[in-house]
């Protein structure tokens, strides 16, 4: 018998946006409050897992055509390049810096290069989690 998942699917469509917004909030606020790349990436992959639960694997792949292994590689590359970038300024490997910038809407914000390293962590966490879950889900 074909199950009717209308309630779950409709709720998922609303809730996924809340989860992804909250994960980005955790990601960007990680420098001053609890949060950061790891928990933000886990929460984003949690939102994708909720999509996988409500819909099936093919629908989610059509909606988010992402190769998660390449995503992991990109994240590692970003983390490595932020470390290498410090060589151009005659500083040791993985030296980070920050400065205060006047942004148009947000006002005076401190932009740190550690966020770029965190972006790498974020991508690696999403990539690894989704690779694990999809490979387990595909095996019969």
């Amino acid at each position: 018998m074909k199950t009717n998942d209308l309630i779950l699917q409709t709720a998922t469509k609303v809730v996924v946006f809340i989860i992804i917004l909250f994960s980005w909030h955790l990601f960007f606020s990680g420098h001053y409050t609890p949060g950061g790349g790891f928990i933000g990436g886990l929460l984003t992959s949690g939102a994708i897992v909720l999509l996988l639960l409500a819909f099936d694997l093919k629908t989610v792949l059509a909606f988010l055509p992402i190769d998660y292994i390449k995503m992991t590689a990109t994240g590692l590359l970003i983390a490595l390049l932020t470390g290498v970038g410090s060589f151009f300024f005659d500083a040791p490997f993985l030296t980070h810096t920050f400065s205060y910038v006047d942004l148009p809407i947000l006002g005076t914000t401190s932009l740190a290069t550690a966020v770029l390293f965190d972006l790498g962590v974020y991508l690696v966490v999403i990539g690894v989690t989704m690779t694990i879950i999809q490979t387990i889900g595909e095996t019969e």
Partner: peptide, 20 residues
């Protein structure tokens, strides 16, 4: 705002969990 978001989230998801 996170607490408000939590209120909305629990209000949406908890009855659906019960239903499932």
């Amino acid at each position: 705002a996170r607490v408000l978001l939590g209120i909305v989230f629990v209000f949406i998801t908890s009855p659906i969990a019960g239903h499932l």
